[in-house]
Design a binder for these strands. Sequence first.
DNA 1: CTGAAAGCGCTAACAT
DNA 2: ATGTTAGCGCTTTCAG
Lengths: 337, 337
Amino acid sequence: MAGRRETRRIGIADVALKAGVSHATVSRVMNGNTSVDPVIAARVRAAATELKYKPNPMGRSLALGKSDTIGIVVPDLSNPTFQAILRGLSVAAARDGYRVLIADSSEVSSEEAILAGEARRRCDGVVLCAPRMSDAELEELAPSLYPLVLINRTTASVPTPSLVVDYGQGIQELGAHLVGLGHRRLLYLTGPEASASNVQRLAGLRQFTADFPGVELQILPGGNTFDAGFEATDAVQASGATGILVFNDLAAMGLLNGLSARGIRVPEDISVTGFDDMPFARYTMPPLTTAAVPIASLGDLAWRRMRDLIMNNDAESPTDYFAPQMEVRGSTGPVRA
Amino acid sequence: MAGRRETRRIGIADVALKAGVSHATVSRVMNGNTSVDPVIAARVRAAATELKYKPNPMGRSLALGKSDTIGIVVPDLSNPTFQAILRGLSVAAARDGYRVLIADSSEVSSEEAILAGEARRRCDGVVLCAPRMSDAELEELAPSLYPLVLINRTTASVPTPSLVVDYGQGIQELGAHLVGLGHRRLLYLTGPEASASNVQRLAGLRQFTADFPGVELQILPGGNTFDAGFEATDAVQASGATGILVFNDLAAMGLLNGLSARGIRVPEDISVTGFDDMPFARYTMPPLTTAAVPIASLGDLAWRRMRDLIMNNDAESPTDYFAPQMEVRGSTGPVRA
DNA sequence: CTGAAAGCGCTAACAT
DNA sequence: ATGTTAGCGCTTTCAG
């Protein structure tokens, strides 16, 4: 029925024919490496532009053994954190002429390894965000993925760059901020148990209680959603704590709403902190005190590390620690006299 | 210095050697197309698994003329709308064994065409979100991009599927909702002038005023940011309108904050609507009445259309209209008596 | 049913 | 400086 507009793709051979030279010469002028007679070069270029010739990346990739593409595997593309990393990575890589291929493991840990391997075969390197994968599995997988950049993970099996956010330090800063405001009865509303970043916050808080022996710190199971924060309202109120450290901004917003619904004033009666500094954290009522994770620059740095690995393939393999930046806003204030 | 762990990639030849057969036979087993003696097949498979052989996608792509990859070009990866489309597309494509390559044009219209062309050469098809590109340019570009799926654009130059969100209808529904609540003095707080979706909303509102001759509709320049909404507060108040249609949720939230700061109650004094139904729209105070754009299913459908194009390459080329779904919440109420 | 050989489009040694 | 030739790793006729 419908007539196909099969505009047969034109290849290097067509240009060669039109310019009256060999494939090799066309390749040479297209890549500008070796020297070609200027007049012939011009003739080739003319033929190329006239035919709108563009080299076929597949042929190129096969011959060169590289694809100018890097892969990123993320656990969940709907998570703003990974979206920001992806964007930072993509923009930075594009500046150097690289593209990015995405693989979403949908939080399934078994998929993470498979997708990473597949991505690596199609790409020149892999940026891996695999929070669910076990250390053992990562250790086994890592060598086959080189060049590899890890996000929020490290591995000993192979020297490879890691970018890790120091959640433990961030929560300690927030805690210290509350103590500085006179709070002595604190409460941490946890995230998901399995979450590695929750574990890091807990470790940070152990250090925190050691540093501030006079401060009471309760721990209450929470979650990472708005609703989880909202539902914890009663338990928070019952705890008697005056300073609440919430796992993340989303849950903190839920708690804020719950407290407001019960007529508890923030920060007059209770101070609340979040974590992440989501775009909306500054627009809650009151605006949320939180810790900002510089996720966009994380993606950017991920590319720089990857590029070092690819270009001078003898790069160092540092671990970069990202210190969250505390943002003090209206949801924290002096403890009630 | 650092010892390279050059684990030479193993290819089809290694498997052939190990199994004592030819490359061709290995290829046959791996693809399961043609019939191979069961015992030989088993031997090949054994060799393959033992060597952990995985076919090299580049070789495959070159031979087959396909990459099992589709490209998506977006104007801005930090825009939640495109993130959601990307995710929907990626997940859907993955189910069929396809990957997605991303290209972020950073809102630069001239980049859109180049990136799309490049993506097309590396991929089996392109999903194009190019709001900035002129119709003429799109028309010229489209044929070379086939298989192509357009988002929020259509073109006449070639029959190709389009997915368009009907912003005009959404804003009309919201307007009718306000009229139903008794409002007779409405105001539309616009988005960016250049935005195609703003133009569509304006067109929808022209229809709206034609349908409701007794209703007054003012139009005020706004923007698509929280701050733009906030800054419009005074002008909104001065307008005397009781029902405010805001370009999007973000600006609506800004307006909500501004009104609250001036002691104007919503919805008792003024009703406010947004557009998009962002995740936080339900958590504002009061929760925001808005129109939900089913963006995730948009990505999903984009893949289905693409797949139809790729598989039965004689598919139809329909235009799918997405009708926004109104979400009535607390920010709209009866006009004050 | 299987192996030999051609070819996908390109780059790079090797000749000339 | 340019053409010839040999791959890159795989699929697919084409013989046998």
